[in-house]
Write a protein that binds this DNA or RNA. Structure first.
Length: 175
DNA sequence: AGGAAGATCTACT
DNA sequence: GTAGATCTTCCTA
């Protein structure tokens, strides 16, 4: 189980370290497990692609406690983020793709993985720490190479590589 | 109340 | 490769 301290660091670091971890979704006592294979980091006002740029609920949520779940809708899809950094900083990590471990649905994209794991707005503003239906657990002894790239689907990116994925993993989203 | 934009996905050519 | 579907969120009036 991840601690609050894990999420209390820079979004870029958390995004990188979330790779390879296992996300567990409990639905009526049944567990769906998947390995995180792709993430992106988002920042506050200085980030042209971030929703924290505008005022509103999303910006406020990004400034909430680290480990807060942020669910955001775009083009008929739910996207899930975890708030990172110290409270008040407005940072988050987007889950972009996971590898199914004990189920079959496609989850190689931010909208697809929320569908596969049945994540929707009801998780918005809940915390990933000590959550009964959704949790992230450590996966030691994993060995993989991390690739960095620019973010996907954003109109204007930062001059920094903020997307991270596991090299050669088949479930990383396409582009 | 209305409108436009968007961190997407699918299907068709 | 391109277009269209479709809905949440924020901004304007």
């Amino acid at each position: 189980m991840m601690s609050k301290k894990f999420f209390e660091r820079d979004a870029k670091i958390v995004a990188r370290e979330l790779l390879g971890k296992i996300i567990v979704r409990k639905i009526n006592g049944v567990e769906k497990r998947a390995k995180i294979v792709e993430t992106e980091a988002y920042y506050g006002r200085e980030d042209p692609a971030s929703r924290a740029r505008q005022n509103g609920d999303l910006r406020e949520t990004m400034k909430d406690e680290p480990g807060t779940i942020l669910v955001y809708g775009v083009h008929n899809n739910w996207l899930i983020n975890f708030v990172t950094g110290k409270k008040g900083k407005a940072e988050a990590v987007l889950l972009r793709a996971v590898e199914p471990l004990n189920f079959e649905e496609k989850s190689s994209g931010p909208g697809l993985l929320t569908k596969a794991l049945q994540i929707d707005k009801k998780f918005h503003k809940q915390s990933i720490i000590n959550n009964k239906e959704l949790m992230i657990i450590d996966n030691p002894n994993e060995n993989f190479e991390i690739v960095e790239s620019f973010r996907i689907g954003v109109k204007e990116d930062l001059p920094q590589k903020l997307r991270f994925y596991i090299k050669d993993n088949k479930h990383v989203s396409k582009k």
